[in-house]
Write a protein that binds this DNA or RNA. Structure first.
Length: 552
DNA sequence: CGTGAACGCGCC
DNA sequence: AGGGCGCGTTCACG
């Protein structure tokens, strides 16, 4: 939908592509709509903050095709230039001052007058940002501008996903809870299955019924030790190594207790309305460029409850997952031809096995994850030398990123997102340890801190570039679905969920194939956008299902 | 008493 | 003893 916007006595006059008009109240309208970049392209709205301005437009039945999010782009540029973000962008929700030629009455300048005075008008900020993006030194010309566009497109998608919501069957969710936990208990009470498990743990530990505070880690550890079980913490992985009849019911208790507290009845009451879960996504919420979420735990949706994510009657969920995204990103970043060969099929880990580097898919996976996260022990460390022999360039890439971090340097993603510098404290510690007369413990602490920073930068390059690929993918899917046809967002195929390397489209059943094609084509485009014609593929698996739990 | 760190665990 | 998160609970502290 192409929108034109003009000032109007009652607010802002918005004209859609069919000539229909609507007046949007001034209080609900963004500071600036800008930049007609040519007749052939739709307008790009330039505003301080998509998350602030877009939702009211969506509620008014309007959609914005392209935008430039000044707050998100400021964060990217500031990071690349190694400086702090300007004040308006540091605030969680950022309005901008009005330009002088527009009516100040549209906005409440009294709220924060000094901030308003300090903040350059949007048009000016936009021009400055475009210049900064253009002069940024990145591997490929225009990379940072591409990142700015992708980040902004992601912000639009995030607002739209919150607006339409994820189709959620509260009824199925309830049923699942009752089955696992028992009927909903009164407030403060334990569901019957949970109570039974707690009692069984007490029995097996030989303590008086009702005397064990099972939810208190210190007390639980004490009780376990009292029963002769040698544990230092109550972590599941540590419990799993023990042989004792109390362990099985305890582990089950922990799993169900988690379900209850994280995604139980309270969660359902708070987050699901009218058959939709409406999480708030936070684009750029993670330093690496990944999204975060705010409330509802959208990015930690446990597998246990995914059967409650259910398409509307006559609709389907088209769920796409980028297969082994991060190792493929590393392959492209490092231009490792041998690993590209291993990734030619749909299963890169199997390809690594077939190359002869390792013996099993599990080893390949563990080894690659260890290489990308900086694992130094266990199985992953053991297979690393074997991977290094066959894929020297890929391994060298992450090793170099780690060394840079250990030296206190920053690293960059493919499109130029820059890792934050280690803090002043970190640098002081390194200087102290390097100084004459430094003690052994000081040197050890500094070394530990340096290695920690190395693990961070090692992972930043890969995770951050994967996030960029995912943004480009999402933007491409959105554009394809968009151009398919006009009409209200919720009446045509639309994105409903994003999870780092997964996208979900809710679509009328008859248009499922169209959505699947969009997901596949946009993935191929994203690879070309980031890496040109490098011989690296980014296959996606696409499943058309009724419930999220039926995918993969 | 309220606040915040620490824990533990869910996701990628 | 592995990178990035969010969130609910417990517990120490002011």
């Amino acid at each position: 939908m192409h929108l034109a916007v003009d000032r109007h006595p009652g607010g802002m006059l918005v004209t859609d592509h069919r000539g229909g008009t609507e007046v949007v109240p001034a209080a609900a309208f963004p500071a600036y709509v800008v930049a007609q970049e040519g007749r052939s392209t739709p307008p790009r709205w330039v505003w301080s903050d998509t998350a602030l301005w877009y939702p009211p437009l969506l509620r008014a039945g309007l959609r914005v095709e392209r935008c430039h999010d000044l707050r998100l782009v400021e964060a990217i540029i500031a990071g690349a230039e190694g400086r702090a973000v300007r004040s308006f962008a540091a605030r969680p929700r950022a309005a901008l001052a009005m330009p002088e030629r527009q009516s100040a009455a549209l906005f409440d300048l009294e709220a924060e007058p000094r901030e308003a005075e300090r903040t350059p008008p949007a048009a000016e900020l936009h021009a400055e940002q475009l210049a900064a993006l253009a002069r940024a030194s990145t591997r490929a010309p225009g990379a940072l501008a591409l990142l700015a566009a992708a980040e902004s497109a992601g912000a639009l998608a995030a607002a739209e996903m919150t607006f339409t919501g994820l189709p959620w069957s509260a009824e199925d969710h309830e049923r699942l809870l009752v089955e696992a936990l028992g009927p909903r208990p009164a407030a403060g009470e334990r569901p019957v299955h949970l109570a039974a498990l707690a009692a069984e743990v007490e029995r097996q530990l030989g303590v008086r019924p009702g005397s064990l505070a099972i939810d208190s880690p210190p007390e639980l550890v004490a009780a376990l030790r009292g029963a002769g079980i040698d544990v230092a913490t109550t972590r599941s992985w540590e419990l799993q190594r023990q042989r004792h009849p109390a362990i099985a019911p305890l582990l089950q208790y922990k799993t169900l207790s988690r379900l209850m507290t994280a995604n139980g009845w309270n969660w359902l009451d708070e987050w699901v309305r009218d058959g939709r879960f409406r999480p708030t996504f936070v684009p750029g919420g993670v330093v690496t460029g990944r999204w975060a979420s705010d409330g509802g735990g959208a990015l930690q949706l446990p597998r246990q409850v995914r059967s409650a994510v259910r398409a509307d009657e006559g609709w389907v969920l088209v769920v796409a997952d980028a297969a082994q995204l991060e190792p493929r990103i590393l392959t492209a970043l490092s231009q490792d031809a041998e690993m590209a060969r291993a990734g030619a099929g749909v299963d890169l880990y199997q390809g690594i096995v077939d190359s002869g580097a390792v013996d099993s898919r599990e080893q390949a996976k563990l080894g690659m994850l260890g290489a990308m996260y900086g694992g130094t022990t266990g199985q992953s460390a053991r297979v690393l030398p074997r991977l290094q022999r066959v894929f020297p360039r890929a391994i060298a890439y992450v090793e170099e990123a780690a060394r840079a971090g250990e030296r206190g340097e920053t690293v960059r993603t493919r499109l130029g997102r820059t890792s934050p510098s280690p803090g002043e404290e970190w640098r002081e510690r390194q200087l102290l340890a390097a100084a004459e007369g430094a003690g052994e413990s000081e040197r050890r602490d500094a070394r530990t801190a340096a290695r920690g920073q190395g693990r961070f930068t090692r992972n930043f390059a890969v995770q951050g570039t994967a996030a960029e690929w995912a943004l480009a993918w999402m933007a491409g899917v959105r554009r394809r679905l968009w151009s398919a046809e006009g009409g209200p967002l919720a009446r045509q195929p639309h994105l409903v969920f994003f999870l780092h390397d997964e996208l979900m489209v809710h679509a009328p059943a008859a248009r499922a194939e169209e959505a699947a094609t969009a997901l596949r084509e946009a993935a191929a485009d994203a690879g070309r956008l980031l890496f040109g014609d490098a011989p690296v593929t980014f296959p996606v698996t696409v499943a058309t299902v009724q419930r999220y739990s039926e995918a993969k």
